[in-house]
Computed example of a mutant assay.
Amino acid sequence: MRTDLSKFTVGKYVAGPKWKVLVWHFVNYFIFNSAFPWPYRAKSALLRFFGAKIGKGLVIKTKVRIKNPWRLEIGENCWIGESVWIDNLEDVFIGSNVCLSQGAMLLTGNHDYTMSDFPYKLGKIVLEDGVWIGAKSVVCPGIVCRSHAILTVNSVATKELSAWTIYAGNPAVRVRERKFVG
C-alpha cells in the first residue's frame, strides 16, 4: 500500500459557513497578516465580530495569521507577536497573560500517515495562564501547556508541558523548573 493523495478528502471537517470563511480570508489577509500596524482594539473587535472570545488587553502585532477566529478563545492581557500563525482547524484556548513570541505556531491539524488517503488528524490546543511560547516554536495538535510553562525558542511541543516548567528542543524536553525571583 502507498500514500495516494488523490483520495484525500477533509472528511467530516467543516471550517464554518462558506460566506464567513471567505470574508474572513480577506480580513485576515488585509488586516491581520498585514505589515500595517492596525490598532490592537480594532483587531480585537474584528476577532470578536467573527466569533472569537477575546479578553481585555490583547496585544496583537503585525503579520499574524489566524485560520478560524470562531474557534479561538483568548484571556486577558495576552501578547501575540509578529508572524504568529494560529492554524486552528480545531479549538484553541489561550488563558490570561500568555505570550506567543515572533513566528510561533499553534498547529491543531496534521495528517494520519498510517492511512493511504492521508486524512486530517485534529486536536485542540490549550495554553493555560502565564504560558510563554518562544519565538519560532511549534505547539502540535492536542497539546496542553499547563500554567506558566515555557517552550523556548525554536522548540516543538509534542506532549503536555507541565506547570511551572521550562522545555527546549525538538521534541521539547524538560530543562528545569520556572521560578520568579522578584
Score class of each variant (00 low, 15 high):
V138F: 11
K56L: 03
L89G: 07
Y120A: 06
V27P: 05
V126E: 01
W24N: 07
L151A: 09
P17S: 13
K53F: 00
V14H: 10
G109V: 03
G95E: 03
L107G: 01
D112Q: 09
G123P: 10
M105E: 10
T152P: 03
P37G: 12
A45M: 13
N110A: 13
A172K: 10
G57Y: 02
W19R: 14
K7T: 13
L122T: 09
V98E: 02
A172R: 12
L46T: 01
H25A: 14
N154A: 15
G169T: 02
A45I: 05
D91H: 09
V27A: 12
V156A: 07
I31F: 13
A35R: 11
G55I: 01
P17E: 15
I86E: 10
E177W: 02
S147M: 07
C78F: 06
R41N: 15
K159V: 07
L72P: 02
G182I: 09
I60D: 09
R71V: 00
A163V: 06
F93W: 04
A135I: 05
I66Y: 08
K136V: 00
F93C: 02
K159M: 06
G81C: 08
R71K: 15
K63G: 02
Y167G: 00
V23R: 10
K179V: 07
L100P: 03
I133D: 09
V138N: 01
I125S: 09
F93H: 11
A35L: 10
F50E: 02
V98Q: 04
A104D: 00
L46H: 05
T165S: 15
S6F: 06
T152G: 08
F49K: 15
L47G: 08
I60H: 11
V126Y: 14
E76V: 05
G123T: 02
A157D: 07
R178Y: 07
F30P: 08
C140K: 13
I80W: 10
H111L: 03
R2M: 07
I54V: 15
W70I: 04
V84T: 04
A45W: 10
C99L: 12
N88L: 05
R146H: 15
F36V: 15
A135Q: 10
A163C: 10
G169I: 01
D91F: 07
S116G: 06
V156M: 12
I80E: 04
S101L: 11
K43V: 07
S44I: 01
D91S: 06
V153P: 01
A15V: 00
V10H: 10
P171F: 04
V173W: 00
W19F: 14
P69G: 04
N68A: 14
W70P: 00
A15C: 10
L151W: 13
D112G: 10
M1R: 14
G109Q: 08
L89H: 09
S155Q: 08
L151M: 05
L122Y: 06
L151H: 11
E73W: 01
A163Q: 15
G95K: 06
F118H: 08
L107A: 07
S83G: 08
E82I: 12
D112C: 05
C145W: 01
